[in-house]
Amino acid sequence: MTYKECLKPWVVARLLPTGKWAMIGRYSKNSDADGHLRLLRQRVPSMQFKVVFDVTERGQ
């Protein structure tokens, strides 16, 4: 994980048809990620989105 990614640990992710998750955006505040999540759920109700806290360690 880069230093820039460490500054924005909150991630909005989308579930892909393959069962994997794709990152949509990174945010420094949980409230910003939740706001984007609400917007995505309103615009694309057929897709599954989640807000997660990225705890990936550096060097992985």
Score class of each variant (00 low, 15 high):
M1P: 06
M1Y: 05
M1T: 06
T2I: 05
T2Q: 10
K4N: 09
K4E: 13
E5W: 08
C6L: 13
C6V: 07
L7V: 00
L7I: 00
K8F: 02
K8C: 07
K8A: 10
P9W: 02
P9E: 08
P9T: 03
W10V: 01
W10S: 01
V11R: 12
V11S: 08
V12Q: 02
V12E: 05
V12W: 04
V12M: 05
A13F: 00
A13G: 08
A13C: 13
R14M: 14
R14F: 04
L16K: 15
L16Y: 07
P17G: 05
P17A: 06
P17D: 09
T18C: 14
T18N: 15
G19P: 03
W21V: 03
W21D: 04
W21R: 01
W21E: 06
W21S: 01
M23W: 12
M23Q: 10
I24Q: 13
G25W: 01
G25C: 07
G25H: 03
R26N: 05
R26I: 03
R26K: 09
Y27L: 06
Y27N: 05
Y27R: 03
K29Y: 10
N30V: 13
N30I: 12
N30R: 15
N30H: 15
N30G: 07
S31P: 00
S31D: 12
S31E: 13
S31W: 05
D32N: 14
D32G: 11
D32L: 11
D32K: 08
A33V: 02
A33N: 04
D34R: 12
G35H: 07
G35A: 12
G35T: 10
H36G: 01
H36W: 08
L37P: 06
L37C: 06
L37W: 01
R38H: 11
R38S: 14
L39Q: 15
L39G: 09
L39C: 10
L39I: 09
L40K: 08
L40D: 07
L40Q: 06
R41A: 09
Q42N: 14
Q42F: 08
Q42H: 11
R43W: 07
P45W: 07
P45T: 07
S46P: 00
M47D: 12
M47Y: 11
M47W: 10
M47R: 15
Q48V: 12
F49L: 03
K50S: 13
V51R: 04
V51K: 05
V51G: 01
V51P: 02
V52K: 11
V52E: 14
F53A: 00
F53S: 02
V55K: 13
V55M: 08
V55Q: 11
V55E: 10
T56N: 06
T56Y: 00
T56V: 01
E57Y: 03
E57Q: 13
R58E: 11
R58F: 10
R58C: 11
R58P: 01
G59V: 00
G59D: 06
G59T: 02
G59A: 03
G59Y: 03
G59E: 06
Q60A: 10
Q60P: 04
Q60W: 08
Q60R: 12
Q60L: 09
Q60E: 14
Q60M: 09
